[in-house]
Amino acid sequence: MNSLVINSILLNGNEFGFSNGMNFIIGANGSGKTTFFNLIMHVLGLKDIKRTTDFIRVDGIVVNCTIGDLQVSITRDNENKIHFNGGIKIEAKYGSRELQSIYNSLFEPTFDFEEDTFAAQEILESSFISENHLYSDVLLQKTYNKILGVNIDYIKSYKKQINLYKQKISNEDSVHITLKTFINNVEKDLENNSSKDEISSVLRKHYISLYDSIFENRKLLDEALEMYNYVSKIQESTMKERKEVVDKQIKDYNHSLGISREESIYSSGGMNILRKFIPNIARTKKYPDYKYLNTNGFLITDSPFGGLDTNSTNTLRNIILDECKNRRLQYIEFTSFNSGIPSNANIIHLNYKEAIGWLRVN
């Protein structure tokens, strides 16, 4: 899957530039951090925030980014159309299948079997993590499967087709039994009729023809079931193998944080944040050696560490910094705390005095 890097955001005359590594947007409470975070999702077509956009000129916001090898500028107009310019020139309505298809063609997620036509937008949306998300939400299993490059809907669709075919054969069986009974009854009724042999011959030809058809259909059903079981086993094995890659990464992160018995330390206070946040790093960072892991190398967070102590926060940020240095992740964090931020990170300060006023249209 292609990577995403946000290069800059133009917002009503204010331009914010980002590095392809670690970035912090710092502002006091009420300075518009969460609004800014939601606006990025809004412009990308991942969210609709009509109440916020009442006082913001939406078509004045431009997200300039790199997706794979393409330079793309994304805007959203007041009619809820998402516009892509630069390396691609196309538009689509918010919430439409066309928009999902555009993201799929840009990010090119990969799957072992049948492609998942609308996976990319769902995976991209999972890269946006807020504090509320950490406390109350979990990544949907179906999205995680897509990150692992496994299209569960494909195998479900295959099973559904097999069940329909089973029903068809079952109906044919009923016809077969009915016809056989009918032939037996006719032969009894024609016991002394001179045309008995001729009529029986015609009926039995129809019977044999139907029987042969059912026999062939049953063979086809057996082959389809055999293929279904084969593909299911491969998918289960694939999912297990790739999940082990991600789980090992999570375990390494835990080790860096000094977590040896996660069940005890995760259950206490703010440390519960770690249990939910650490997997997000592992599920978004790039894995160069694993083609079918659909991670986009992008993670953006809104005030995620409010419940963590300073040491844990700093250690966690150092883990993220290592991934950024190795170009496996672009990280953007909105925060009100400027302590413990790595010195080589890119830092953007929001206007403290005017608070959310900097977002308004002049």
Rank of each mutant, 00 (worst) to 15 (best):
I265R: 08
D48N: 12
I208P: 02
I9Y: 01
L179F: 13
L164S: 12
S105C: 11
K286Q: 06
L329K: 00
R327G: 08
F16L: 15
F24Y: 09
F118W: 06
A355D: 03
Y290C: 07
Q235T: 04
S268P: 02
T66A: 02
I281L: 10
R317P: 00
I61H: 07
G32K: 07
T34K: 04
F334S: 00
S303V: 12
N23L: 06
K159L: 13
S105Q: 15
N192C: 12
L140S: 12
E122R: 10
M41R: 14
E333S: 06
S126H: 03
A92N: 09
L106S: 05
Q141K: 10
K47P: 01
D173Y: 11
N29C: 05
D54E: 14
I88C: 08
D116P: 02
L329E: 01
D212G: 02
S260C: 09
F18M: 06
F111T: 05
N338H: 05
L220R: 13
F37H: 05
V63N: 04
N151R: 03
K89Y: 13
N272T: 11
R261N: 13
Y228Q: 11
F84S: 04
D322K: 00
E131I: 13
T238G: 03
N311R: 10
I162Y: 04
V361E: 14
I49D: 10
L164N: 09
K325I: 06
I265T: 12
C324W: 01
H349D: 10
F334M: 15
G86T: 02
I278Q: 02
N2A: 09
K89G: 06
D289C: 07
V58H: 04
L190M: 15
L99Q: 03
L148S: 07
Y290K: 10
V175E: 05
I347M: 03
D77H: 05
K47I: 07
V361S: 11
E323W: 00
S194T: 10
S19P: 00
Y211P: 01
V72D: 01
Y154V: 08
N23P: 00
S126M: 02
S201M: 13
N163T: 10
D116Y: 11
F277D: 01
E115G: 02
I56W: 00
P342T: 06
Y230I: 15
S343I: 07
E263D: 11
S19R: 01
L4Y: 00
